[in-house]
Simulated assay, not measured.
Amino acid sequence: MLRQLNMDTLRQNFWKEEYLREKMVRCEWHRKHGSMVKAKQKAKAAARLPLKLPTLYPKAPRSPTPAPQAVPSKAPSPVPEAPFQSEMYPVLPTTRALLYEGISHDLQGRYHYLNTRKLDMPEMRYLFPITTNFTYGWQLGPPVKQELVSCKMCRIDSFFRKNGAFALLDPRDLAL
């Protein structure tokens, strides 16, 4: 697009005034409505933040009350019980030592540590199921091998055609 060459002083002053007027209108609008817009932006940003729910810990089983002692001893000072700091059991020192041996690039260090931790069952790592997905694998025990049936008539290897995709249809492949 070509520039207009018929810009004279009158037209330049018109555009200058128009630009300043728009600028003043923007400043006036910002002065009048700016605080309201900022408040809406803060409310939207606060609504986008995830809701932090408190962590629920399992109730510790109550120990049986000891028999009363005949000799009164010095009253111990009440020590408040500290809540659990983690959802996981502490890591064994031998497993934790794997973190500091080598680097992950050489399949040592963190890589070896994580693979070793992965071998433990979830109930050995966590105090209780943290998510609902944990309930599917919680306290299943070791995996049980299922023996295959030796009868070929009872077992179906695949739902694909036995003689290839582009071969002629075999009557055994059709389900009528």
Rank of each mutant, 00 (worst) to 15 (best):
P66E: 02
W138H: 03
H33K: 13
R26Y: 01
I156Q: 14
Q4W: 08
H33N: 15
P142E: 11
K44C: 02
L107Q: 10
Y113K: 02
S63P: 02
V149M: 04
P129Q: 04
S63L: 14
A75E: 13
Q108H: 00
Q4V: 06
Q85C: 05
P78F: 10
A43E: 05
R62N: 09
M1T: 09
F160P: 02
M124G: 00
R125T: 12
F128K: 11
Y89E: 08
D173C: 07
P61S: 08
A165C: 00
D170Y: 03
K152S: 15
N13H: 07
A47I: 00
F128I: 01
L169C: 12
G137A: 12
M124A: 14
W29L: 08
N163E: 09
I103L: 04
I156T: 14
P64R: 04
P50W: 06
I156F: 09
L119F: 03
R11F: 06
E123I: 01
A39K: 12
A70Y: 04
F166M: 07
K74I: 05
Q108V: 00
Q85A: 14
T55D: 07
A43Y: 03
R96D: 15
F159T: 04
G109N: 04
N115M: 11
K40D: 08
A47V: 01
S104N: 12
K52G: 02
R172E: 06
S150T: 05
S63Q: 15
Q139S: 09
E101C: 10
P50D: 10
K23Y: 01
D157P: 02
M88C: 11
V25S: 11
T132F: 11
L2I: 13
P122G: 05
V91G: 02
P78T: 04
